[in-house]
Design a protein around this nucleic acid. Sequence first.
RNA 1: GCCCCUGUGGCGGAAUUGGUAGACGCGACAGAUUCAAAAUCUGUUGUCCUUAGGGCGUGCCUGUUCGAGUCAGGCCAGGGGCACCA
Length: 852
Amino acid sequence: MSRYNAREVEAKWQSTWQNRNTFETKTDTSKPKYYVLEMFPYPSGNIHIGHVRNYTMGDVVARFKRARGFNVLHPMGWDAFGLPAENAARDKKVHPAEWTYANIANMRKELKSMGLSLDWSKELATCHPGYYGKQQKLFLDFLDKGLVYRKESWVNWDPVDMTVLANEQVIDGKGWRSGALVEKRKLNQWMFRISDYSEELLEGLQTLDRWPERVRLMQENWIGKSSGARVNFKISDRSDHLEIYTTRPDTLYGASFMAVAADHPLTQELAKSNTAIADFVAECHRMGTSEEAIEKAEKKGVDTGLFADHPFIEGKKLPIYVANFVLMEYGTGAIFGCPGHDQRDFDFATKYKLEISRVVAGPGGEEGPLETEPYIGPGKIINSDFLNDLEVEEAKKAAISKLEELGLGSETINYRLRDWGLSRQRYWGCPIPVVHCDKCGTVPEKAENLPIELPEDVTFDKPGNPLDHHPTWKQTKCPSCGADAVRETDTMDTFVDSSWYFARFCSPRADEAVSREDVDYWLPVDQYIGGIEHAILHLLYSRFFSRAMKVTGAVDFEEPFAGLFTQGMVTHETYKSQSGEWLFPQDVITNDAGEPVHIETGEKVIIGGVEKMSKSKKNVVDPAEIIDKFGADAARWFVLSDSPPDRDMEWTDAGATGAWRFKQRLYKFIHENLENAADLNADEPTEFSGEALALRRETHKTLASVTDSIEKLHFNTAIARIYEFMKTLSEFRSTGEDGAWALREAMEVMVSIVGPMMPHLAEELWELLGHTEILADSPWPTVIDELTVDDTVTIAVQVKGKLRGTIEVPKDEDKAKVEAMALAEENVKRFIGDATIRKVIVVPNRIVNIVI
RNA sequence: GCCCCUGUGGCGGAAUUGGUAGACGCGACAGAUUCAAAAUCUGUUGUCCUUAGGGCGUGCCUGUUCGAGUCAGGCCAGGGGCACCA
């Protein structure tokens, strides 16, 4: 027998699937659909092992559902806009488009070598005008419905690169690449009204019962709903009011000061004539936005000299401060300070020697002054006039009613979620299709002028936005009046691209952004698979987009992803040389003494922790090399085995070798034992005896269990059951017609259930078994339920809760008989001795517990 | 600080959801085959006691129960999310 040659066999089946267009899918309302989607990759140049894990999982689901009779959509595309292409352009003098398309070509080739059941006819790239032009149409539709607006807002501005930075690109208050001190600047930014959908996005989470609980929780926290009150404090000796937001109206009697944000209109008004305030505002703007900077920043403020009138206490005046810990973006940008019952207010009051009074009694009824720390917990209200003796929650309600009565405030729901700023001062992104006209203002581009394509002749040697530098691109005519006008040079955040690609996949070449007929059939995505790192932004933005597209009539659903699965990372041991340099795993070998040494120098290697694969630590393995060495099937098998899919898995060579061994073993087994099996389509014998029947039982039990495991995405347990079944098969010895038939049945089931995970090997064996139809087009085998239940069961017998023996009894045996058999068991008798039996618990088919 | 998740052999992990803890894989050990090795195959492998057999054992402590890895309460450790959010 020839050894299994993965390289040849895998190439053979990949071209068979391709030539037969096996995985091309059409909308067909007569069939049940199933949409499997893995998060599409950024075309960085090569696939990494995390992609292998992600796409293998999706592929198992896709192939499995296909075999189960579903019309499966399983597409692939490229999240192709983004900064790395511009960096490559600057550093390597290669155009972003050229760089990106070359990367796509290479990654496509690598993905194809994995044998994924993808419909490549639906491939799309977000950097292609055929995609981003439709995105511009969506943008115009959103604009028309008021879902997008332009607003001056504060951004992180890198003065060296002359660009806006996202929060995560600001490290310790400095630009991640330039290292320049980041400034807060006010810029005109395009914004999506996602915050209008806060409540809907929050409520929608309730319906997502096939999402991981923790992702829903993260989104819930991110949306950050809180309920409280808006209260108007009259500014003393002025006619206007200061509106604040609070979740603790019950502590109003503990108020000792007011604080407003540096960007609050009141502050800005005062800063014009008060240099102390103006200086402080400038200082706040310089303050870094990193977590660390915020953590360390002291609570500071400046007294404005103004006072506010307390809403409940006649004549009580509260000093108004500008404070660095009050954020303009949250609530109303102003607060009242209650130092007794809020940590920040306490810190602030301590620094500026403001009154700290207690209005909530402590858990033990303490009513004394708060000297070292505020009290945040529940309790009875004190020192608060009409609120006295109420519990915190009751007092909140009472305070709000009183405020409403006085016309000074009302109950309010507040959300942490802010609008999504989508403007980026970058070249390699989707141009925002609007025009700025001196006469008409900001005018949307005409739909027939779309796509507004990116110019090709751009330079990246100057800081700032290359689109803005382009000599002619932005010069245009106003779509409204026809006068000379300027194009918007901002491009869209790349999160926009990934917020609707799942819908475009249904009909990637349609004239409309999405074709209703197709999305109505395919969407929502039945199973979405990707990394937990997208738990908030990408998934929340996509959920918003679905709602927005529903408003424009493009789709008719709210939730884009009915099922979500977040897979774990792939980790690897780390290695360092004696001099402390990181080493690649392939440069580390084991010497004769069993020690890890460097392959070239022979120097002993220091083994470090198991960590997420990263280029900087060099603990990476290259999927292309793995596939070349072990074959795609073995790589797929290994990433699915051992670890539960939602947890991190460690890549080890031993594990990959193990997968390879199983592949060889199965191949060899079918080859060597096929002659003992019945012919394809041989008549089923009327009776099955001992061995043959036992094998059939195992076959159907395995089939049922593996089917269930795949359905639940528990690939590791499915594989464990297949290993057990392999063992059963190798031990099977039987002659006779029934044995031969049972063996064929077992082999067919084995090949079928291995199919979604090792598709090439399975096709090869399927063909060997004599089938003329390929496995990918063959149905999943059917479980015969009668064969999955045994006639007898092994029951554990406990004495006083400790296992003392087991008995074999017929299934569903009469309780009294089971009890008698249990009591007759030798070891059980020994443990009962002459003690009195107080009670016997019999759980049918499970356990007997004898209490003495 | 707030919220959440996870702790099971040397390792990755199973456990029908309260019913025989450690399936399956890796590693290790022993044996078969081989001139030898690789590959392959067969066994053993939680721990302690000398075996039949038994004691102990799912991070720690308490509890509920005939029975707890699983439920409850309190700790400890590791990981993740959010964070001057009023």
